[in-house]
Design a protein around this nucleic acid. Sequence first.
DNA 1: CTACAAGCTGAAGCGACTAGAGGTTCAAGG
DNA 2: CCTTGAACCTCTAGTCGCTTCAGCTTGTAG
Lengths: 155, 155
Amino acid sequence: MLDRKKLERLVPIGALAEQTGVRVETIRYYEQVDLLPPPERTEGNQRRYGRRHVERLAFIKHARDLGFSVESIRTLLKLSDSPDLPCDQAHAISVAHLGDVRHKIARLRSLEKELERIASTCSGGVSACDCAIIEALADHTQCAHHEGGLAGSRR
Amino acid sequence: MLDRKKLERLVPIGALAEQTGVRVETIRYYEQVDLLPPPERTEGNQRRYGRRHVERLAFIKHARDLGFSVESIRTLLKLSDSPDLPCDQAHAISVAHLGDVRHKIARLRSLEKELERIASTCSGGVSACDCAIIEALADHTQCAHHEGGLAGSRR
DNA sequence: CTACAAGCTGAAGCGACTAGAGGTTCAAGG
DNA sequence: CCTTGAACCTCTAGTCGCTTCAGCTTGTAG
C-alpha cells in the first residue's frame, strides 16, 4: 500500500486544499461525513491524495458553490459512480435546486425593496429624524409583504 | 405582581405565538438569549405576556423576516429603547444589511443562470443522456464564474 | 373531579463548517 | 546526522437560529 513510487505521485492535504480552494479543515470534515473517501496514509499517518480525490473534491466544491446541500451532493456522487440510471435523478435534483434558488431570489428582491423603502425614510443625518427605521420595523402594517407568502419560508 | 385584574389582561405563550406568528419554542428561545424580556408568571410558573411584549416580539419577527441577524436586532432594540441617538446607527445597520441582500441576489442570479444551463443540457429523458449534469459538475472549466469573485462569499 | 391540552425545564440535535488545544511528522538547512 | 519549524494529526467545542425531545406540571372545559 505504501509503495514508494505511488507515494511520490500523491499530495498532502495542504496541497489538495490549495489546488481545490477547499480549506484543510473542511476536507477532513468531508472525509468524516463520508463525502470524500479516506485517502492513503504515510507511515507517519498523514493523508496523501491521488488524482481521483482531487477530481472528486473539485466536484464537491463546485456543487457546494452552486448551493447544493451535502445530502444532494452525496446522491449526485453516488449517481456519478454508477453510470447506469443517473440522468433522471440528477436532473430532478438540479431542477428542484433551481426552483429553490429562484424562490430565494424572489424573496430577497422583495426584501431589497422594503429595505430600500425603510432606509430611505431616514437619511442618517444627526437631527430631525426620530427614527423612521425603527418605527417601520415596529409597525408591520406599512410592510408590502404584510401577511403575504414570504414569512416562514426561512423555516 | 400577580394581581388578579392584571393577569386577566395578559396572554399565555400559545396566544402570543398565534398573534405574532412566532413559534412557542422560538419565543422561549428569544427570552433565553435576552431578546425578549422575561414576562410575568402565574402562581404555577407559566408565562403571561402583556401588550409591550406583543409589540416587541412583532418588531423582532418583522426584523427577522427582513433577514436581520439576532445581533443586529439586539442593537436595533436597544436603540428603540433609548430614543436619544438612534438614527445614525439604525440607518447604518439597515444600509449594511441592504448591501448584504443585494450581494446575495447577485450571487443567486449567477447561480440561477448556471443551473439553467446545466439542467437544460439534459432533459431528464431515460435514454441517450450520459449524464451532462454530472459532467458539468465535474468539469469546472465550463463554468461562467470560473475563478470569478463568487466562490468563497459563503464563508 | 377528571381528562387532556397547554405549559414548563434542560439537554441534545441540525447543517456545514470553524477554531482551538495539544501533540506528531516531514523536509530542508546547517 | 541533527535541529528547526511548518505542516500535519486527533478530538472537542463553538457558531447561528432555531427545533425536537423527554419527562414532568398546570390550567381549564365538561
